[in-house]
Design a protein around this nucleic acid. Structure first.
Length: 414
RNA sequence: GCUCCUGUCGUCUAGUCCGGCCAAGGACACGGGGCUUUCAACCCCGGAACUCGGGUUCAAAUCCCGGCGGGAGCACCA
């Protein structure tokens, strides 16, 4: 038998000995199945040999190794070098990216308050990826609802300050309230091409139709009619009397996808534009226009937006644009009792916190006052990854990272 | 209810796409020891997990089916 041993078999027997020694050293006795796995993983030729033949070799070698004394195993194993496990550094690679990819990202807050730790996770991830794949990171204020989400003037600056403190490299700052003419241009284009229509049904009728998958008469109106109705939206129609809808699929399983709303009339003064405009875009419409306009190819957002991709796909197709790549991220919540911006607002009102920058507040401003370094927040965010599971902030871990960073920087040196 | 997403140590996670270098790695927390006048920090050591049940395979955290748990969306909000 020994005379017929091929070169491959020698190689395998040698590898088996090496793995068996390591296995015996680490766990007391070597196990054949573990050794076989390692051989399959490291020696491609092993498959050619066939499982039975391989097992015979491994069984023999494992038997020999297990008959050795502890000292002998230790000595023999010491002759080999076993690589340490590798730990990935930083953020994972983008599966679709290659060496020349540049990632253009955006952080799109509503200017209604200060940045929480949850927001900063998204912002830092955007910034990090636009650095990892050199591209641009934009800030875009989504302030298109002066009624239910009234923008706060101070917030525009406070948010930018927080982002800069966090070390984000901002390539440009946009406000959607500056961009209404652009949205109108595309709305008209869509109306002309029959991809969208002005709907004058009442809110109740529309809700019922969507729920039941029924197309209303507005849907089949001519382009001329739609354009004329669009003009009337500027002044004749009252708030709630007409909206612009995207033509999607009235039979879509999710009723909210069925001919979703693109623009509506709001007769309330906007803190930035006053009464200049009264037709305001809805989120899904303005987002698509802006992302395309700004050359965004990587959208990083909270996973609650995941469903919006389905809606937006119709718009991208209608305009002939390519949908950007997306990363839907699990929400990083400050703690069990304070998990949302509104909880912080409430705590301030009730006097439990002195303000958004209270050192106990889970806001960027609060952490700053508390002595947390921006680098610590970034490192924490990066270590928490891009998974879709929600998680609570592990404050002890953040503080541990912070301690280490402060020591490295000599901040607390005596 | 419908549509979609998700489930790894106490916690946050790596690994899952492409099965085998995983009897599952790291960090924080915890326990023990060291150092220090004490505490903290720091150093060393240790315990600690693949949601469950089937299937495929020589081999499953990884693939397939089902159950259970968690989350999101179903706005003229973003």
């Amino acid at each position: 038998m020994a005379l017929n041993m091929s070169e491959a078999e020698d190689k395998i027997a040698e590898a088996a000995k090496k793995f068996a020694l390591k296995n015996a050293r680490d766990y007391g006795t070597a196990q054949a199945s573990i050794v076989i796995n390692k051989i399959f993983a490291e020696i491609p030729d092993a498959k050619k040999l066939g499982f039975k033949a391989l097992k015979a070799i491994v069984d023999r070698v494992v038997g020999e190794v297990n008959s050795l004394s502890k000292e002998e195993i230790e000595a023999e194993a010491g002759k080999y070098v076993f690589p340490e496990k590798e730990q990935r550094e930083g953020l994972p690679d983008l599966p679709w990216a290659d060496a020349g990819t540049s990632a253009n990202t955006r952080f799109a807050p509503n200017p209604s308050g200060y940045l929480t730790i949850g927001h900063s996770k998204i912002a830092i991830l955007c910034d990090e990826y636009s650095k990892k794949y050199p591209g641009k990171f934009f800030v875009r204020f989504e302030d298109t609802d002066p009624k239910t989400k009234e923008p706060k003037i101070e917030a525009y600056k406070a948010i930018v300050d927080d982002l800069e403190w966090l070390g984000c490299k901002i390539a440009g700052i946009f406000k959607q309230s500056d961009r209404l003419e652009i949205y109108y241009k595309y709305a008209k284009q869509l109306l002309e091409s029959g991809k969208a229509y002005v709907c004058t049904c009442t809110r109740e009728e529309m809700q019922r139709n969507r729920k039941e998958g029924i197309s209303c008469a507005c849907r089949s109106a001519s382009a001329e009619e739609n354009l004329s109705r669009w003009e009337k939206m500027q002044s004749v129609f009252k708030e709630g009397e007409a909206v612009v809808r995207m033509k999607t699929d009235m039979q879509h399983p999710n009723p909210s996808v069925r001919d979703w709303l693109m623009l509506r009339i709001i007769d309330k003064s906007h803190p930035l534009t006053g009464n200049k405009y009264r037709i305001w875009p809805l989120y899904n419409f303005s987002v698509v226009i802006d992302d395309h306009d700004m050359g965004i190819n990587l959208v990083i957002r909270g996973k609650e937006h995941e469903m919006n991709s389905t809606k937006q796909k119709y718009l991208y197709d209608a305009l002939g644009w390519e949908q950007p790549h997306t990363l839907d991220i699990g929400i990083l919540k400050p703690s069990k009792d304070i998990s949302h911006k509104s909880d912080i607002k409430k705590a301030i009102q009730e006097g439990r916190l002195t303000g958004w920058d209270d050192p106990r507040a889970p806001t960027v401003a609060g952490f700053r006052k508390r002595g947390i370094l921006p680098g610590a927040i970034r490192e924490y965010v990066i270590s928490s990854g891009i998974g879709k599971n929600d998680s609570y902030l592990d404050i002890k871990k953040l503080e541990a990272i912070n301690r280490k960073l402060r020591a490295d920087a000599g901040v607390d040196a005596k």
